[in-house]
Amino acid sequence: MIYTNNIIRMFTHMEEQLDQLKQAETVKGMWKRNVILILATMIIYAGMAYLGLGTNLISEHLTETSTSELEVQKLWFLLGRSLYGCLFAILVLFTPSLFYFLLTDTIYRKLVVMQQVVLIVILLERVIWIIQSLLCGLDWYVSLMSFGIIASYIFEKNWLIYFFGAISIFQLWTIWFQTKYLIRTTNIKKYVVWMLVLTLHLVGWALAAAVASIDTILIGGWFN
Results as ranks from 00 to 15, higher is better:
residue 178 Q to G: 03
residue 150 I to C: 12
residue 180 K to I: 00
residue 171 Q to D: 08
residue 167 I to V: 15
residue 203 V to M: 03
residue 203 V to I: 14
residue 217 I to Y: 14
residue 182 L to Q: 01
residue 204 G to W: 03
residue 133 S to C: 07
residue 163 F to A: 03
residue 139 D to K: 15
residue 150 I to D: 14
residue 145 M to Y: 15
residue 174 T to L: 09
residue 212 A to L: 11
residue 164 F to Q: 09
residue 134 L to C: 05
residue 206 A to Q: 07
residue 152 S to V: 07
residue 191 Y to N: 07
residue 134 L to A: 06
residue 160 L to I: 12
residue 161 I to A: 05
residue 198 L to C: 05
residue 212 A to R: 06
residue 164 F to E: 07
residue 207 L to S: 03
residue 196 L to Y: 08
residue 202 L to K: 00
residue 197 V to A: 00
residue 178 Q to M: 14
residue 158 N to C: 08
residue 174 T to K: 08
residue 176 W to M: 02
residue 183 I to Y: 06
residue 203 V to E: 00
residue 157 K to Q: 15
residue 179 T to L: 00
residue 177 F to C: 04
residue 161 I to D: 07
residue 170 F to K: 06
residue 206 A to C: 09
residue 209 A to P: 12
residue 177 F to P: 02
residue 181 Y to W: 09
residue 183 I to V: 13
residue 162 Y to W: 05
residue 204 G to A: 03
residue 166 A to H: 09
residue 155 F to T: 06
residue 180 K to Y: 01
residue 191 Y to P: 03
residue 139 D to S: 14
residue 158 N to P: 15
residue 211 V to I: 13
residue 199 T to G: 12
residue 186 T to E: 02
residue 193 V to M: 05
residue 189 K to V: 08
residue 177 F to G: 01
residue 212 A to S: 15
residue 172 L to K: 03
residue 183 I to K: 10
residue 191 Y to I: 07
residue 156 E to Y: 12
residue 184 R to E: 15
residue 142 V to L: 11
residue 133 S to M: 05
residue 197 V to D: 00
residue 136 C to E: 13
residue 213 S to E: 11
residue 172 L to G: 04
residue 160 L to C: 09
residue 155 F to D: 06
residue 132 Q to R: 02
residue 157 K to L: 11
residue 214 I to F: 15
